[in-house]
C-alpha cells in the first residue's frame, strides 16, 4: 500500500547524480481515514436546533386590576377530545359550533372573526383530555392569523356542558 514511488534517475551514464526521490506518497489510507471520521462526525452532529415558541401566561399571583372583557369582543375556543375545536362568540348563551385544526377549519374562523370583530380577544380553553399538540396547534393558528390578543384560560364545567350540547 504505502509504497514510496522512486521515480527519476533513469538515465544511464553521464554524470553521477544523487538519486532523485519522489516526494509523492500514497494518500489513499489517509483519505480513507479522513472520510471515516467525516462520516462519524456527520452522523453524531445535531445540526438543527429545535424551534421554540414563546408563551406569556397571565399573571396569577398578584391581583392586578383586570379589565372586564366586553362580551362582543370575546371569542372562546375550546379544545376538545379527538382533535375537535369548539368555538363561540360572546359569553352568555352562546351558539357553539364545532370545527377542526385544518387550514379550512379554525383558521378560516379566526380570519373571518378577525375581520368582523375589532380588537378581538381569544380565550383558549383546553380540556384536560385534549392533547398537548392541540394547544401548540392553536397557538400556531394565532400566529398564522396574526391574532394578537389571546390567553390560555382554565376550562370551567360550564364550558364542558356547552360542548356536550352539540
Amino acid at each position: 500500500m504505502a509504497e514510496v514511488n522512486t521515480g527519476g534517475g533513469g538515465k544511464k551514464g553521464g554524470k553521477k547524480r544523487a538519486k532523485k526521490v519522489s516526494t509523492k506518497i500514497d494518500m489513499t489510507p489517509m483519505v480513507d481515514l479522513a472520510f471515516l471520521l467525516i462520516t462519524f462526525f456527520m452522523l453524531t452532529t445535531t445540526f438543527s436546533k429545535p424551534q421554540t415558541m414563546e408563551v406569556n401566561m397571565p399573571d396569577r399571583t398578584e391581583n392586578n386590576e383586570q379589565q372586564p372583557l366586553k362580551e362582543s369582543k370575546a371569542l372562546t375556543i375550546i379544545l376538545g377530545e379527538d382533535n375537535k375545536v369548539y368555538y363561540f362568540t360572546g359569553l352568555t348563551e352562546p351558539k357553539v359550533e364545532v370545527t377542526d385544526y385544518s387550514a379550512q377549519g379554525i383558521r378560516q374562523v379566526l380570519l373571518q372573526k378577525n375581520k368582523q370583530i375589532k380588537d378581538m380577544v381569544v380565550l383558549i380553553k383546553p380540556m384536560n383530555t385534549s392533547r398537548y399538540k392541540n394547544m401548540v396547534d392553536i397557538l400556531d393558528e394565532m400566529h398564522i392569523t396574526n391574532t394578537k390578543r389571546y390567553a390560555i384560560v382554565d376550562i370551567t364545567p360550564k364550558d364542558i356542558d356547552l360542548t356536550k350540547s352539540i
Partner: peptide, 25 residues
Amino acid sequence: VDYDVVKNVIATLQEQNINKFNLIT
C-alpha cells in the same frame, strides 16, 4: 400527551411567578 399533565407543569411554573417560557417544537 394529555393537556392535563402540561397544565399541571405550567401551573407549577406559574406558582413561582414564571409567566414566560418556551415551548420546544
